[in-house]
């Protein structure tokens, strides 16, 4: 897996140095996107909750909604969008060489990525962390009891490294059993090949819900890593960065202000709240700095919905949701003890 990492960074760096030279003087991303007539948004190979294909061939998921939100803000139409699925080895390259305008996939915001790959990470739209699943009848209630256990893990991500760190720091002597595909990892765990599986808690919750008998398994309370999953844009185009960042903030802010896709028309017409009026473009001129229409935030909320609605639909208990509880987690609004916090829109 180290080989992959080297290749990834090498190609990204080559692309940046070569690509950077040629595109430095070129037009801004917003102009390019407007001229093209649609947004090119990059996701990854399907990943439950974040970006998925349905049986009709359409994309759906929390990160896909971010793409839709930016398209709605720019064009007033959330479907002026081309979604590209790029493998994780190529994700930063494809952004750097201009194939995509926006990276909206489960990329963990880390310092080295932010500072060395020529990217700007924005407001995380999901705070994840690594955890463990065990069988209920094993009697294990804490990750610290996993001494000498065999733990199934998918290779090639930070998950594997986190597990090794956790084992070393706590002197647990965990032996990792690695897999390329999470389906095979879970299959092995279910057949008794491992005592536990580890992965991001969000995806584990989803996978657990799909086990034949979900109630036989529990996710342990410990979270052993910080995984802020954030969209990213190319470094150096602040105007574009602002548009994407505030599209996400608008969704979070709308939830805080109680504006939903269902009541946004009513709010725009009748609300007395000056914060709502400013956000929806009834008052003030917040849109000017973004070079977008007055309706930009209204379009996002009307067509895509606020953050809470989307969380419910794809991460929560909606029909397509993977059932991760939001209360008490980092993904709750700051007013409810979480980390979802938008700077004031004024």
């Amino acid at each position: 897996m180290k080989f992959k990492t080297i290749i990834t960074s090498l190609t990204a760096i080559t692309a940046m140095t070569l690509g950077g030279v040629t595109t430095a003087s070129a037009e801004s991303t917003l102009d390019i996107v407007k001229k093209r007539g649609h947004l090119r948004c990059q996701v990854g190979p399907p990943s439950p909750g974040y970006y998925n294909l349905d049986s009709k061939g359409n994309w759906y998921g929390l990160d896909v909604q971010t793409c839709h939100a930016v398209a709605a803000a720019i064009f007033g139409d959330k479907d002026k969008l081309e979604i590209q699925s790029v493998s994780s080895q190529m994700r930063f390259t494809a952004l750097a060489n201009g194939e995509s305008d926006l990276l909206s996939r489960t990329a963990t915001w880390t310092m080295s990525r932010d500072t060395q790959l020529g990217l700007d990470f924005l407001q995380p739209n999901f705070y994840d962390g690594q955890g463990f699943t065990v069988r209920k009848d094993s009697g294990i209630t804490s990750a610290l009891q996993l001494k000498g256990a065999k733990v199934c893990v998918t290779s090639g991500t930070t998950t594997e490294l986190n597990l090794a760190d956790f084992s070393r720091v706590n002197n647990l002597n965990i032996s990792a059993v690695t897999f390329e595909d999470f389906n095979v990892r879970d299959e092995t765990y279910l057949n008794g090949g491992c005592d536990s599986t580890t992965g991001d808690k969000s995806s584990m919750a989803g996978n657990l819900a799909a086990f034949p008998v979900p109630s036989d398994h529990i996710i342990l309370p410990e979270t052993i890593s910080k995984e802020p999953l954030a969209p990213a844009v190319r470094h150096g185009d602040s105007e574009w960065r602002d548009i994407v960042a505030w599209s996400i903030f608008a969704m979070i802010n709308a939830e805080e202000l109680g504006v939903t896709s269902a009541n946004v028309d009513d709010m725009r017409a009748n609300s007395d709240d000056v914060n709502i009026k400013r956000m929806l473009g009834v008052e003030g001129s917040l849109n000017k700095g973004l070079k977008l229409d007055k309706d930009w935030a209204y379009n996002i909320i009307k067509q895509v919905g606020n953050y809470g609605e989307n969380y419910e639909a794809y991460m929560g208990s909606g029909k397509l949701g993977i059932g991760i509880p939001r209360e008490g987690s980092a993904n709750a609004l700051w007013t409810k003890g979480g980390l979802m916090y938008s700077p004031p829109m004024r």
């Binding site: 190979p45 294909l53 349905d54 493998s87 996978n207 993977i322």
Partner: peptide, 23 residues
């Protein structure tokens, strides 16, 4: 490399929320 040929599609089924884990 991210094209949805037949194998890519077959693997995507196990990620689609209603069919999660069906691989």
């Amino acid at each position: 490399i991210g094209l949805f040929d037949i194998l890519g599609m077959l693997r995507s089924i196990s990620r689609d929320t209603p069919w999660l884990g069906l691989h």
